[in-house]
Design a protein around this nucleic acid. Structure first.
Lengths: 77, 77
DNA sequence: TTGTGACTTCCAGTCCGTC
DNA sequence: AGACGGACTGGAAGTCACA
């Protein structure tokens, strides 16, 4: 549930910034295929991964989590 | 690094709310010993654990992350 | 540019307990 | 109430070749 939402939000933000999965992987020091797994909701990030990704996307972790939270609250109903 | 900060923040918030580790474990459906590991910075939470914990502490996930982020930014210098 | 399957290593998280 | 230990299972981290 949360993984899927996180994946969608991640993809959404990345797309808005016109960054490829490859570039995001490079900026965050994560593997390109791992980004793909995250976006498809097949993996769940840990705290440090959340921080790495938000830094790479040039947003704060709380902004990222906030979007996930909003979407999650909405989806729960 | 991040684990330690997260642990401190978690303990801080929990203490402020006067909740025992045991109660927090109960509210969040996590193990008592695991809460202890988190607070001592020996384990790192995943996204769902962050959500579970913040729900149990009656704060939003972004508030929790925000505190961690502030403390992290401060510690980096 | 991304999805996917396969794989290994390591850690998230649980359960038993003691101090 | 909380620190800390050992042993365990599932699943995340991290990487590869290929479609």
């Amino acid at each position: 549930m949360l993984e899927n939402i996180f994946g969608l939000i991640l993809k959404e933000i990345r797309s808005e910034k016109n960054i490829s999965q490859e570039k995001l992987a490079e900026f965050s020091n994560l593997d390109r295929t791992y980004i793909s797994l995250l976006e498809r909701g097949l993996r769940q990030p840990t705290l440090t991964t959340i921080f790495k990704l938000s830094a790479a996307l040039q947003i704060t972790p709380q902004e990222l989590i906030h979007k996930v939270y909003e979407s999650y609250q909405h989806a729960k109903k």
